[in-house]
């Protein structure tokens, strides 16, 4: 594999890792606050459909993004009501919302556009276009780093850079603000937060809503940047892979960046059978490559994260002492 191929792979890694990163950070807020969220997948799907539909109808990608966040938030609120207000089983609620999203997205897209559950292909104004970073062209001649900057780092949509910026922002919010301290406390020991006179339900709802917003951006990225429109089941398990990355990252933001980019790299590899072939030295069936990200996810879960300790109150509804 030569340097140019490697750069192409890394470029796809960043492109494919971004929705995982957004979803992973989304899950991080919720799970750090003690609410498991299997429903990242459904929220992303709902967001992707909303973004695709609104961007197609209005021609504005920004309205599409807003719609995506709104669509995702509806599902986040449902999850919050089920798991916080009514103390339901958080795993089951997430699974239910995933099915709901899987069906309702096709129903709505079909009712709006009648194209078999897709949204129409988006044209220029309806998509987030690649941005060329400053000096990318002129520095292209610099050996090694020049092409790296031009090929890999520059030339992505604004959502990619936003996702990357969310990593330090999340770190700062979690570890350097009062809200972050309380958020982490409510996931470890909600009774202590309650005793301090801070609303457990309020904090958890805040976390679930942040999760909704980030999943909304992730879905919008899927339908308006990575691809040009919504297609049924287009998230293809990314919400679950993001969850696996979250466990791999042990619920920490910087590690989440590393984990999601690793999974992004697996997905990039799966798209390049020729590269895999030249490295392995024999022909590999495409179906095997399709399974690669999922197999590696299981290996990661099995091998390296045996001792990943989730937030202690995760999955447990909080019942106020009387």
């Amino acid at each position: 594999m030569d340097y140019a191929t490697l750069l192409q792979l890394l470029d796809s890694t960043l492109r494919l890792g971004t929705p995982l990163l957004l979803a992973c950070l989304a899950g991080l807020y919720s799970e750090r606050a003690g609410i498991f969220d299997i429903g990242l997948e459904g929220k992303m799907l709902m967001a992707a459909m909303s973004a695709g539909a609104v961007a197609a109808l209005t021609g504005s990608v920004w309205l599409g993004l807003l719609a995506a966040i709104a669509g995702s938030l509806i599902f986040a609120v449902l999850h919050g009501v089920a798991s916080i207000t009514f103390r339901g089983n958080q795993l089951i609620s997430g699974v239910a919302l995933n099915f709901l999203a899987s069906g309702i997205t096709v129903l709505i897209a079909q009712a709006l556009f009648g194209q078999g559950g897709r949204t129409p292909p988006l044209t220029d104004g309806g998509r987030f276009n690649p941005i060329t970073l400053p000096f990318a062209e002129s520095l292209q001649g610099v050996p090694v780093l020049g092409p790296l900057y031009y090929e890999v780092i520059s030339g992505h949509s604004i959502l990619v850079y936003a996702a990357l910026a969310f990593v330090p922002m999340t770190w700062w919010l979690l570890y350097r603000t009062r809200f972050g301290l309380r958020l982490r406390a409510v996931g470890e020991n909600p009774a202590s937060v309650d005793t301090a006179g801070v609303s457990v339900k309020g904090l958890r709802f805040a976390a679930v809503l942040i999760t909704g917003i980030l999943c909304g951006i992730a879905g919008a990225y899927m339908a308006t940047a990575l691809q040009a429109g919504f297609g049924r089941e287009m998230t293809a398990g990314r919400g679950y892979i993001a969850l696996a990355a979250l466990i791999f990252a042990k619920w920490r933001p910087w590690q989440a960046l590393g984990a999601t980019m690793l999974f992004g790299f697996f997905q990039a590899l799966a798209l390049r059978p020729d590269v895999v072939e030249s490295v392995v030295g024999r022909k590999v069936p495409v179906s095997m490559l399709d399974a690669l990200p999922y197999v590696l996810t299981v290996l990661v879960l099995a091998g390296f994260v045996g001792k990943a300790i989730p937030p202690r109150a995760g999955g447990e509804p909080y019942v106020k002492e009387r």
């Binding site: 089951i92 609620s93 919302l97 079909q110």
Partner: peptide, 24 residues
Amino acid sequence: KIPIELRTVVQGLVILFTGALDYM
């Protein structure tokens, strides 16, 4: 003209109400 995916919607709703919202 109702897409077959309505089944998935009903399925999700049943899981939601019987599994997660049974307390409600």
